[in-house]
């Protein structure tokens, strides 16, 4: 090592870290504060709209993991009635190919990313657990008409702007506009 710059390089580095010391932190206090996720988020659930599903099983065919299990029987009005639809989300890699392949717009990616469980068997979602409901909203993935209805994603890129997440270390300035859900 030759201190060819007389240690100025190190001092410059110290200045940079000091500059960052005075910058607001970028971490978010997760359970209390949540960022608004992407409108197209592929959360860890699938949302199934029963009324539109014809039981064609295209989703099952398109799944790379062979993860969607669907059993149907012929109904009275010349239609298929889905007896069983089961997705093991523990094996699912949320690639979204089933959603893209669905010809009847009956399958959506979910918006939730908080479906961790303690047991693997709880990750196997059955027909009832997949149905569209109040707390299981579809995300805009592959469906622009849903996408436009959802709130805009908070971007770290706009951290210094009013509509972005504005974070500050000093407690008396903490009330600033953080991206809350």
């Amino acid at each position: 090592m030759r201190f060819e710059r007389y240690g100025i390089g190190i001092i410059k580095g110290l200045m940079v870290t000091m500059k960052n010391f005075l910058r607001p932190p970028i971490t978010l206090q997760y359970p209390e504060e949540k960022l608004i996720t992407s409108r197209r988020i592929r959360g860890n659930e699938l949302v199934w709209q029963v009324s539109k599903c014809t039981g064609c099983a295209t989703c099952a065919k398109s799944c790379p993991q062979g993860n969607i299990e669907i059993v149907t029987h012929l109904g009275t009005e010349n239609n298929y009635v889905v007896d069983k639809l089961q997705v093991d989300t523990g094996k699912c890699m949320f690639c979204g190919l089933c959603v893209e392949s669905c010809p009847y717009e009956a399958l959506f990616m979910g918006r939730s990313y908080e479906r961790a469980t303690y047991r693997r068997r709880e990750l196997v979602l059955s027909k009832e657990a997949l149905e569209l409901s109040e707390d299981r909203q579809p995300s805009g993935y592959f469906y622009p008409r849903i996408e436009v209805l959802l709130p805009r994603q908070t971007l770290l890129l706009y951290w210094d702007r009013e509509d972005g997440q504005k974070l500050c270390w000093f407690p008396w300035r903490k009330k600033a506009n953080r991206g809350r859900r």
Binding site: T17, N20, F21, R23, P24, P25, I26, T27, Q29, W169
Partner: peptide
């Protein structure tokens, strides 16, 4: 805490 602040975290 302070190393956290140097590393722009809390």
């Amino acid at each position: 805490r302070l190393i956290g602040r140097f590393q722009v975290r809390l």
